[in-house]
Amino acid sequence: MEKEHDFIPERAKWKRQLFRVIFKADTKSGKTFDMLLLLLILISTFIIMMESVAIFDAKLHRTFVILEIIITVIFSVEYVLRILTVRNKRAYLFSFFGIIDFLAILPFYLSLFIPITKYFLILRMLRMLRVFRVFNLLDFMNDGYYIVTALKNSSRKIYIFLLFLMIFSVIVGSMMFMVEGHREGFESIPQSVYWAVVTVTTVGYGDVSPGTPFGKFLSVLLMLAGYSIIAVPTGIVTAEMRAKRQELGKVCDRCGNGDIDDNARFCKICGEKII
């Protein structure tokens, strides 16, 4: 969550108090402030979704616009107050939540010139991540750290896997192009490659399907291979997550088991007490 960017000097007591309300959730006023922000985010998201429904937009367009303006003004004032009350302004502006706070208001002002960009206001949903801080659920963020770290450590293996998958899809798609003989959906190699990607990922839109016996046989092989292929990146990331957890987490001194929950008091394998 947000780091504590050093309090403002004594001469600006109101800024320190406002800083605690805006950036912290350890006081009643701070929690109330955050809960109101979360509520406004939900209302804003609901408005954006309803605006995309023609029947609602036709009846309530003016109301939606007024509510969007009010909410955006509140978020704009809040963003300015965050900048004013934080000492290390650069650290906040370029932090994860600083960028998200900025993106929460930018689309509205862009929509004054490019109307379609107003739908980017849905990015305000990212501000809901503050719910972890409000309800003291920061431990869940540690689990998110394991996932991000595992993905980062697995990136090289995943890139190689994706390259193999691309090559495999191009080859199979080209084969299907020759087998189907320019039938509907297989008029070109790119269209056939599209079919191969949809099939091997087991998405199966059904908009393109082979008609020849050999084409159907090739499809069966590709669909069966798809189940095996999907398991590869899952296994890679899972192995990295397990390794990272063993590296940073607890390890049983007796049997060496590293798969130990954070709140565990005894090893699940040998029953040894965990220090």
Rank of each mutant, 00 (worst) to 15 (best):
G30I: 05
R82D: 09
D6S: 13
I69P: 00
P213G: 02
E187L: 07
H182D: 12
L222H: 01
F135R: 08
E240R: 03
A225V: 08
T45P: 05
K268C: 10
L162F: 13
K118I: 14
I71T: 02
D139P: 06
I99T: 14
F161C: 04
V21F: 09
V131C: 11
D57V: 08
Q17I: 13
F113W: 15
R133D: 14
A231M: 13
D262Y: 11
L248R: 14
E4H: 13
T117E: 03
T27I: 10
T85R: 01
E187C: 04
L60S: 08
V220E: 11
H5S: 05
E78M: 15
V86D: 01
M141N: 09
R127I: 08
I158P: 00
F94Q: 06
P213N: 12
G249E: 02
V73F: 12
H182R: 13
G235W: 04
D261M: 15
S169C: 15
K59C: 02
C255H: 10
I160E: 09
I122V: 15
V148T: 12
I189V: 14
L37C: 14
L151Q: 05
V251L: 08
L40D: 04
D207G: 05
I100S: 08
F19K: 07
S219D: 06
C267V: 06
S76T: 15
L84P: 01
P107D: 09
L138G: 10
E247M: 09
L81T: 03
R133W: 12
M128D: 06
L37F: 15
V200W: 01
K3A: 13
T149A: 15
L248D: 08
L39S: 13
L112M: 10
I43F: 14
C255N: 08
A12L: 12
I171E: 03
S154R: 07
F177V: 03
G185Y: 00
Q17A: 07
S174C: 11
A196E: 00
I160K: 10
M35G: 09
F135A: 10
I269P: 01
K273R: 15
M175F: 14
M35V: 15
L126Q: 00
L126F: 15
W195S: 04
F33R: 01
P233S: 04
K268S: 12
I189L: 04
I229Q: 00
L84C: 11
R87S: 13
P213F: 02
T202M: 11
F97N: 13
I275E: 14
D139L: 10
P115E: 08
V197K: 02
